[in-house]
Structures are given as structure tokens and as C-alpha cells.
Design a protein around this nucleic acid. Sequence first.
DNA 1: GGAGAAGTTTGATCCAGCGCAAATTCGTCG
DNA 2: CGACGAATTTGCGCTGGATCAAACTTCTCC
Lengths: 251, 251
Amino acid sequence: MTGALFAPSSLPTGTAVDYGGKVTDCASCVVRNRAICASLDAEELALLGKLGRNHRVNAGQTLMWEGDDAPVVANVLDGVLKLVLAAAEGREQIVGIVFPSDFIGRPFGKESPYSVTAMTDAEICIFNRKSFDDFANAHPDLQHKLLRRTLDELDRARHWMMLLGRKSAEEKVASFLLEMSERLSGQGCGGGPQSGFELPFGRQQIADILGLTIETTSRQLTRMRAEGLLDLPSRREIVINDRAAMEAIAG
Amino acid sequence: MTGALFAPSSLPTGTAVDYGGKVTDCASCVVRNRAICASLDAEELALLGKLGRNHRVNAGQTLMWEGDDAPVVANVLDGVLKLVLAAAEGREQIVGIVFPSDFIGRPFGKESPYSVTAMTDAEICIFNRKSFDDFANAHPDLQHKLLRRTLDELDRARHWMMLLGRKSAEEKVASFLLEMSERLSGQGCGGGPQSGFELPFGRQQIADILGLTIETTSRQLTRMRAEGLLDLPSRREIVINDRAAMEAIAG
DNA sequence: GGAGAAGTTTGATCCAGCGCAAATTCGTCG
DNA sequence: CGACGAATTTGCGCTGGATCAAACTTCTCC
């Protein structure tokens, strides 16, 4: 599908590889202060900038496939992507959701452990993995930032394991809505979690996040609306009316 | 229970803190070449050794509690520990299993995101977290090692998420047995996975790993034995008779 | 603005895994 | 050895969520 886009490069390590995208301008980058690049000074940033290329990705497009060689890593500038593992018979589990300023790809390892697919149109800043690895090894602060991010991501993954293994459908949906209201509000202008927000994905994807079927997910939302816990102004909009009750349900 | 053992220290950063354990002798450490310490040369190791203390832990003893301040991190020298998150009503999900040479605790963050409990008698090498953080910041190779370990752990956690969200009880048990046969054989002398091995935990804990009840877990094992897939010589011993069939079930 | 496609909701039925309780096996300590 | 306690297995009924199917809603594109 996007074969040429991410084809492994045969250029020597450290050389800027052109993936066809626009040259990165780190100084004016929208996630300059939030992404791992925040650990770098102006000079280092200029070096890293030479390795990066900006790319637009369409909703639904898959950047990397589970198990395939993944010759690139990237920062997300805009949009939302999902990390997916496939089970038997077309079943899928979403194992991570990636927001702007988050990092995607697997440094120091060549196979991608999961598929990465854009859930919305997105913009990302791509690096050749090997070049990035070398750069990271030469810049401890960047690795430190990456380590912290990975530790946070691991904590989040483990909490999600508890949700998947031990929560009921109702608890799962409530937990999900609360987490999304927090992570999505982190996006826009500051402040605490917003009661109303727009989900960047549909029912099937919510189901794939929660380890449920689309029908169960839909039924839970309908029931919560009937009970006045929330409103559903449109397909992707959620308004939490009673946050305290929602938290009580989430457990 | 073990309050004094891990009480936060008020000593200044970088000072060796005595937790009551024996002084670490890194040079003769059983996990010297496998733990993150393998990134250090003799001189660095001597420095780190001054910060570490060896400790014995009894089976069932909890080192850190979910949400509590966790003033220490540690390497596991011997034994097996579990990372646990509690859900409502006494339900528990095991979110990680820690083997010798693995690292426990949360560097660069003060609250422990989960409980850490010994499943067998264990021996660990403990560091004051703040001292360790400082040491790590001064030694990029150590951070690199820690980053790689954390990335691997994240991959494992995400695969476990897929298991918890999308696999049937039968698939869960098969996957579990295969993974355990690999990780446990990594322990002893080299070679591939062993068909027979001893689990370091009982049925309830297997259930807590797989997001099942103890009854369902037991029934699956009994059924697999009846079908000749495996033998159960004793409560904690497993012998996989037909690995190929087991892999086919695991999916 | 209307036809078609895609996504969502709702209904009806089914069954894998849960919950409770009793029986059994295993370990261990006097 | 024997008896107690803990862990595990087994039986049985039930239910939460899955599955199958159909209606409905919302977008898209002409």
C-alpha cells in the first residue's frame, strides 16, 4: 500500500534519508516542547532535524505491519494512531493509542511488534531507525526522555491489562471514557479534563480497545445515556454528565 | 509488615543507605552478566556496589504497595516475584512476572504503580531510588540498558493485553504454558524451551495472570491432560507432550 | 436532495466462563 | 501414622457478554 514510503534505505548510517516528505523544521515544530526533542538544545535539534522528514498520513493508512521490518521511527505532530495486535480469526486488540508529541516505532529492534495505523488524518515526523538509534546513543538526554516515556507507557499498558482481565463491560466503558476525557483534553488548551469531547474513533475501535464486541459497547453507551450518566450529541461526541458517578462505576 | 526494611531514607542523595542487608559484592554476583549491571565496567560496578544491599525475601512478602511511595529499586538475583494491580472486590490482575536478572521498581517516579510481591523465596539487590536515579543519569550505558529492558517489557505487556482482551480460556492457558516453558528454561542451563518444568506458582495465581477464575483454569488444565496434550506429575509441574498442538491452540 | 454505503443500534438467542458448594488431593506437623 | 488445613478439582446452575440478524441512522458522493 505504502511500500515506497517506508522502504528500507541502503544509504549509510547517519545519512539523511529522503522518504519523500518535507524537510523537518524543528524550530517551529508544534510539539517542540512536548516530544522527546524537548531534551535537545538548538544545535542538537538542528542535527536531528536533518534526519527527520515530515509526512502526512491518511486516516486508515497503516504505517507498519506487525512482525515486518520497521526501518523507521517517528514523532506524531498531529492526529491519532493506534497500535494493533491481531488474534486469530480477524479479531483485533488495540494495545496503544498514540497522540501528538508521542513517539512511535521500536528503537533498537528491527521488527515492529505491532501494526501502526492512523485513526485520523495525521502528520508525523519520520526518522530512519538506524540513524535515530545512532543519534540517540550519542545523546543521553534524548535516551533519558525516551526512557521516561517508555516507563510511563508501560505503566499505562499494565493498568490496561488490569482493565482487560478483571473489569466488567460497564466498568471498562466507564474507565475508557474517563481516560479519554483526560488524554484528549491534554491535547487542546490546558486545564483539567473536559466533560464533553469528541472521540477520534468509532464504536468498533472502542470495542477493540476494551476487549469487547461492538454490540456490547454500543449497549453500554445507550444504557448510560438512558440513565442520564452521559449524552451522545453525535456519533463521536461524548458528554459526561456525572463524572463522580462515572468514576464510581469505573472502580 | 516490613516497614523498616524499605522506609524512606532521609540521608542525602548519593550516600550509601543501609537497609539492613548485606553489602553487595557485584563482582561475584550471579546475575552480573545478565542484569542491567552488565553495561558497567569494573570501576563503575564498584561504585554502584556501594549503593546496593542484598536482601532475602520470603514467599508471600510484599515489597511495595500499589500507590505507595516506593523509595527503592532492585535487581532480582534469585526467585520469582509478581507485579499486581487490584480491581474492585478483592479481584487481582497480575501485570508482570519478574525473574532473576530482571529489574523491579519505578526509576524517576516516586509512587509504585503496582504492588510487588514475592511468589517464591527470593534474593534481591536493593538500591535507594534517588541514589540509583543519580547514578543512572551519570551512566548513559546503564540507562541504555534500562531503556532496552523497558521496551522489551512493554512489548511483552502489549502481547499480554491481546491475550487478555481477545483470547478464549483455552487459548490463554496454552499461551501461558508455552511462554512459561520458555521463560523458565531461560533460567537454568541454556538451550531451547523444555517440555517439562515446574511453575513457581499455584492455580489461583495462574488465574490472576490470565484474567480467569481458578475453576476455569483448573478445568482447562484437566481437559488438556485428558486429551493427552500435557501431563501434570504434581501440582506445580507441567509436561507438555505435544508442543505443536499447543502452539496451534495458542494461536 | 437522493441513493448507496458504512456505521450504529436494537432484538433475540446462545454459550463460555463465572459463582457457589461439595468432594478430593496434597502437604505438613504433632 | 494420622489428622488437620490449604490448595485443587469437580459438579451444577446461572448470567454477562457473544453471536446472529435485522432495522435504523449518518455520512458521502453524484
